[in-house]
Design a binder for these strands. Structure first.
Length: 702
RNA sequence: GCCCCCGUAGCUCAGCAGGAUAGAGCAACCGCCUUCUAAGCGGUUGGCCGUGGGUUCGAGUCCCGCCGGGGGCACCA
């Protein structure tokens, strides 16, 4: 089959062999190039425009029957775009070098190429291909910058805040992130979660998706109950200026440690009983018994009682206070949400029961009468266990209590709108960005059910298997296409040099402290430098922006899957690959633009500048990096590897620094000066846009 | 024991769907402010991409084994 195909290809190529060598430029080959015009609606994607030309050229060369992938060569001497023809050559039974040469040879620069500075006529002509060159199996394409740079600048200006938006349909996405137990202050791992989730959200929105950000509040869990119980029974004075979530967290840690002590005490007690020399009225033993009794008969039942009270709707005042206090942390980082979904609402709306009723209808669910799952409600996920039983996931235990996975399946059926929505929605609070944060509710307005096309859960990697179980459960229940919509972004844990952080032991670095540390360090540096005349308020504002950007940048500069070894010194470092580096490049751009205005150069003059004058190497590099943005956004919206956004911003800032060194702007000759100002403005706009996508505040001076 | 993620420069990490000579930042050393903010720029040093096989014209990238780190493996959440 494959042979037959390649045979036909070879024959077809023979007919076209007129363009076989680099020196053969038969007119027929050229006249065969009836260029199909590209879409006339602006795509604001200059690189795609270049690619269109290349693809059209390749098509019309008659030598390429497949869609070849366009690459960005690593080395500048290989041009701006390249295709490699090894695979194609192999299928055609040809020598790769020869094929590449043949393709390159079919290009004639004078035929389609517009003369320099010819403007924008003839979209689809060879406006942007300067040359085509064959090198060892690669066909390299060089950009014609004099026509390309003006096109880049116009496109970015035209696109404005939508630069990077993809063509085509919008999809609806639910992103769930944060989902921190409402029982103590955020730690650094929560900050990573929130920044990742928020950045993913920003990228998807830029990309054109309609995103709803949900923050799941597990108020009925043991953690929340423990904190509430501690607060009600063992309150301590609040410290001066202590944030409420920190205060409650302090009580939580204290009581958790008593629970943790239970095991240790049990062991101690057992070994003492084995010791013949101790009698039953040994005071040491009695002390241990008393403590154990306290834990087992007071603390544990007390916590469980509070848990049920919360489920029934009590103590919401305390939980709300903790939550509102916690939310100050993401708000400071410019992380916002659309909806809080409360576990207690899901429980009290009987969502779980309706979901299980639906699962009951699946032929793969069942109530085993014997075996290891006797008495439970399970869903068979396929395959058999080592004991020969069918593999199953327990959704409801034999004692009638739902499992975590069971609850999560129900929850995701709600997210995916697989059953009628029993919940109502009310406004919860107004966030610092002015947007209303909504909350689920048992009373109030309903909302129209709109099923998402994609559900992204930002949850740490240790939940991977549970997330997979939810997916399999949904599939087994017959929701196969819906289950495919679930995507778990499993990010790595944040650990310190000492080891894994633990909320329960209170060894975690608090998010608030990390942010404040970064802000304080920034303020200190600003005071030291005094490079501008800044008053106290300005310095504080700038320090806040620098600190927040430092934290956010730190959290997104790594591949999400990777574990982060967190060293506070790294967040506070302002050299090299950091948020401040990007901000600093912007400060320089703002300074240039400000001084230009002060020198009386009107915006209109800059608008009218001739961008084709920008032919310095650094100017070309800036332009070429600018046009990689749409592709970067599109890759990230697919892979959720948000580190690429940070990398793009860092690289643009780096190239700008080189431009700054090599190309004077204000002292350039009139004409070129305006052109450079136009470029600086464009780079500024693009970089501000990238900072917005990263949620990083921008500063204009430092 | 089984499953998942990760092993790339002294340290922290990129490397997006296999492509050309593997890149940053930090640290170290040497240089650059009479010129748009030096929190910047240039240079030097630094790599058997954990390891052994395999697939491929081509492997840091895909497959298998092993070693090391982390996580998960219950009718726990």
């Amino acid at each position: 089959m494959a042979l037959v195909q390649s045979f036909h290809r070879v024959r077809a190529l023979r007919h076209r062999s007129v363009s076989d060598g680099p020196d053969v430029r038969e007119p027929s080959a050229g006249s065969a190039r009836q260029r199909r015009p590209v879409e006339s609606s602006p795509t604001y994607d200059p690189l795609a425009d270049f690619d269109q030309e290349i693809l059209a050229f390749l098509r019309d060369s008659g030598l390429v029957s497949d869609d070849l992938k366009l690459e960005v060569p690593k080395r500048p001497e290989h041009g701006e775009r390249a295709v490699n023809v090894f695979a194609l050559a192999k299928r055609q039974g040809r020598n790769p070098n020869e094929l590449a040469s043949a393709i390159a040879g079919s290009f004639s620069a004078d035929e389609g190429g517009a003369p320099k500075g010819a403007g924008l006529q003839g979209v689809g002509q060879d406006r942007f291909i300067e040359s085509v060159e064959a090198v060892t199996g690669f066909v390299n394409f060089r950009l014609r910058y004099p026509t390309f740079i003006p096109h880049v600048i116009e496109s970015i200006r035209g696109a404005g805040n939508t630069y990077g938006r993809r063509q085509g349909t919008r999809s609806r996405v639910v992103v769930e992130h944060s989902s921190v137990n409402p029982n103590k202050e955020w730690h650094i791992g929560h900050v990573r979660n929130a920044v990742l989730g928020d950045t993913v959200t920003r990228v998807l929105r830029l990309s054109g998706d309609e995103v709803e950000v949900q923050n799941y509040i597990d108020d009925t869990g043991l953690q929340a109950a423990t904190s509430v119980y501690a607060l009600l029974n063992f309150p301590e004075p609040e410290k001066e200026g202590e944030k409420y979530d920190h205060y409650v967290g302090r009580l939580y840690v204290k009581i958790s440690q008593e629970f943790a002590e239970e095991d240790r005490l049990q062991e101690q007690r057992a070994s003492m009983l084995l010791d013949d020399e101790r009698s039953d009225d040994d005071p040491e033993l009695q002390r241990i018994d008393a403590r154990l009794q306290n834990i087992q008969q007071r603390l544990q039942p007390g916590t469980v009682r509070v848990m049920h009270e919360i489920e029934a709707g009590q103590h919401s005042d305390i939980i709300n206070m903790v939550l509102k206090s916690q939310l100050q942390t993401p708000f400071r980082l410019r992380v916002y949400y659309d909806l809080l979904n409360w576990e207690s609402h899901l429980v009290r709306s009987h969502l779980f029961k309706s979901a299980m009723d639906l699962v009951e209808k699946s032929p793969h669910s069942g109530h085993p009468k014997d075996g290891r799952y006797e008495g439970a409600f399970v869903i068979y996920t396929g395959g058999t266990t080592s004991e020969g039983e069918e593999k199953a996931e327990v959704l409801v235990r034999s004692n009638g209590i739902p499992t975590y996975v069971g609850k999560d399946i129900a929850y995701h059926m709600w997210k995916l709108h697989l059953l009628p929505d029993p919940l109502s929605y009310v406004a919860y609070l107004e966030q610092p960005n002015g947007a209303i944060l909504w909350s689920t509710s048992l009373h109030g307005e309903k909302r129209p059910p709109v099923a998402p096309d994609r559900v992204i859960n930002i949850i740490a990697v240790h939940q991977s298997q549970a997330q997979e179980a939810v997916k399999q459960g949904l599939q087994a229940a017959g929701f196969e296409t819906e289950a495919e919509k679930l995507f778990h972004l499993a990010y790595g844990m944040v650990r310190t040099k000492e080891g894994l952080i633990s909320g329960r032991k209170g060894t975690a670095a608090a998010g608030d402290d990390v942010i404040q540390g970064a802000v304080d360090a920034a303020l200190e540096r600003i005071r030291e430098k005094q490079s501008q005349d800044l008053d106290e308020d300005e310095m504080k504002q700038i320090a806040e922006a620098v600190g927040v950007a430092a934290v956010r940048y730190f959290m997104v500069q790594y591949n999400p899957l990777r574990e982060i070894v967190f060293d506070p010194a790294d967040v506070v470092s302002f050299d090299g690959n950091t948020g401040l580096y990007v901000q600093y490049a912007l400060v320089r751009m703002y300074a240039i633009l400000r001084k230009a205005a002060e020198a009386g150069i009107a915006d209109a003059e800059v608008d009218a500048a001739d961008a084709s004058l920008l032919q310095h190497e650094q100017e070309r590099r800036l332009a070429f990096h600018l046009v990689k943005w749409p592709e970067t956004v599109s890759t990230v919206s697919r892979t959720l590897g948000v580190n690429l956004i940070a990398e793009w911003a860092f690289d643009l800032a780096t190239i700008f620094s080189e431009f700054y060194r090599d190309c004077g702007v204000l002292n350039a000759e009139p004409g070129l000066r305006e052109s450079r100002l136009l470029l600086v403005r464009t780079v500024r706009d693009a970089l501000v846009h990238a900072c917005d996508t990263l949620g990083m505040p921008v500063i204009e001076r430092l």
